[in-house]
Design a protein around this nucleic acid. Sequence first.
DNA 1: CGCCAGGTATGAT
DNA 2: ATCATACATGGC
Length: 287
Amino acid sequence: MPVSTPTAAVRLRAVPFDLKETFECGQCFRWDPDSTGGYRGIVGRRVVTLRQDGDFLMAEGLTQPEAEALLVPYLALDEDYAAIHALFRENETLARAVDYAPGIRVLRQDRWEALCSFILSQNNNIKRIKGIIARLCESFGEPLGGGDYAFPGPEVLASLSEEDLAPLRCGFRARYVLDAARKVAGGEVDLDAVAALPTEEAAVALQAICGVGIKVAHCALLYGFHRIECLPVDVWMRRVMATLYPNGLPQELLPYAGIAQQYLFHYSRCHPSLFAGDGQPAKGDRP
DNA sequence: CGCCAGGTATGAT
DNA sequence: ATCATACATGGC
């Protein structure tokens, strides 16, 4: 009998952690619930199904050593969320957001996938972003079997035309994706070099790509480079900041602003009425 | 129908 | 430097 059979239990201790909260809080676009309470997604070239069992995550599709090597960093299981929660709970507002979804963890996603995904996210909604990314992977990603596909690399997309991307129905963002792919594949924007830069210089470097402004740059850095001090400000976070933090986040939270943002973003999206009248004019408001 | 969505590039003050 | 507008697409 082999030490590890395909059905052997592959377990990872994960506390605090919640699959739904982590995969449906708006940070990633390629995880979906299956029919048995688990979540199925793609990590790199691996198709993974995760189930929660108390303090443990059960992983299908990987051996125990593979799960340790791949999922511990990806799921940020090496990060001390108990300490982060303790810090966050000292702030009354943030405490409410943490208590609402304490199982959120900010993932360490692939750099290029995060960059490309958040280019596609601009002026768009999460449901449609997921559809566009699914079509992108099906159309141009490497088949992984079982109807799953890897996220296409920049070198694959770099040789395509806007017409080639038409079936994605990503609208004006097609041009931006191609510019990103060409600059990354060509080395004009070197993601390894970006990873070595101080955070604000890294953001400036990413903004050399057409379609990458400060918000997309911060999302790429937070989710793809795990720069957890990055605070992406979108329409939801603009309302949160205006309503709850008119003077900005407290200093002691700044090193973890990106993680704080994730709890606040999710909380605000699930309680839209709390932020309806924020005083800050929305995009379409008339004076 | 009009408004909105994890914004940004562009051109006018 | 700051500000308004266009931009594709689809859900509501």
